[in-house]
Write a protein that binds this DNA or RNA. Structure first.
Length: 230
DNA sequence: GCGACAG
DNA sequence: ATCTTGTCGC
């Protein structure tokens, strides 16, 4: 694996890497039963010139949605945040965090888009391909594309997310009368299965439990790090 | 050229 | 992403 795959020289090269990795995305799966689900997220210091990213991954039981293990890792992002290139900032730290997990999850829910991305490689697909794990992108807002119709207000409602005449994801109502989530496959997951898998992780909040747990873990990790490095 | 723009 | 106060609805 070329070094610039993790730390590209410029955005032009980064885009080329994304197009290459996008070819390796597998749009079907999961290959087996989903007994465990992991949630991943990254926390940052506001206006931090050093660009430190604090990553966390939480493994939970897919049935009870109870946390089973947590792992964290801190890295310095190789590039600043630029829409369309989020993966280069967060994936290295997330991969490092996964190394600290006691076991590999059957599925991973990622904060951000999967293939609903300008070059078909949002952070969920990026992470999935590098880890070789089934991943789904769960974003809170749109990067590219438009909802193909009006989304009903009830939890579980869906409508396709289209872009240039192509269906790239699904707009999903994860809770009654709240802003929808934008779901797209990351890697080793089929487009039809993705929305159901995400909904299965949603209880009483807008965001799925794995994502909520990871968000909390990443914030706790960052605060803990700050307290010991004062 | 102008508008859009995950976290 | 992070910060922050008030406000609205169940």
């Amino acid at each position: 694996m070329p070094a610039d795959w993790l730390a590209p020289t410029d955005l032009k090269q980064a885009a080329a890497v994304q197009r290459e990795l996008a070819r390796r995305v597998v749009a079907e799966g999961p290959p087996g039963p989903v007994r465990t689900v992991a949630g991943v997220d990254v926390s940052n210091f506001p206006r931090d010139p050093t660009g430190r990213v604090f990553a966390a991954v939480v493994l939970l039981d897919a049935g009870s949605l109870k946390p089973r293990a947590t792992a964290t890792a801190m890295r310095v992002a190789p590039i600043p945040y630029v829409p369309g290139f989020l993966g280069f900032r967060e994936v290295p730290a997330l991969v490092a965090a996964f190394a600290g997990l006691p076991e590999r999850p059957d599925l991973v829910l990622v904060d951000g888009h999967g293939v609903s991305h300008p070059r078909g490689l949002g952070i969920a697909a990026h992470l999935g391909v590098l880890l070789g794990l089934p991943t789904i992108g769960v974003a809170k807002s749109i990067l590219v594309g438009h909802p193909a119709g009006e989304l009903p207000p009830a939890k579980g409602a869906t409508v396709p997310l289209s872009w240039n005449g192509r269906e790239i994801g699904t707009v999903l109502r994860s809770k009654d009368r709240v802003a929808p989530l934008y779901v797209s496959i990351g890697h080793k997951v089929g487009p039809a299965a993705a929305p159901d898998l995400v909904l299965r992780c949603c209880t009483k909040y807008r965001l799925p439990e794995p994502t909520r747990a990871a968000h909390e873990a990443a914030n706790a990790f960052r605060r803990h790090w700050a307290a010991e490095n004062a």
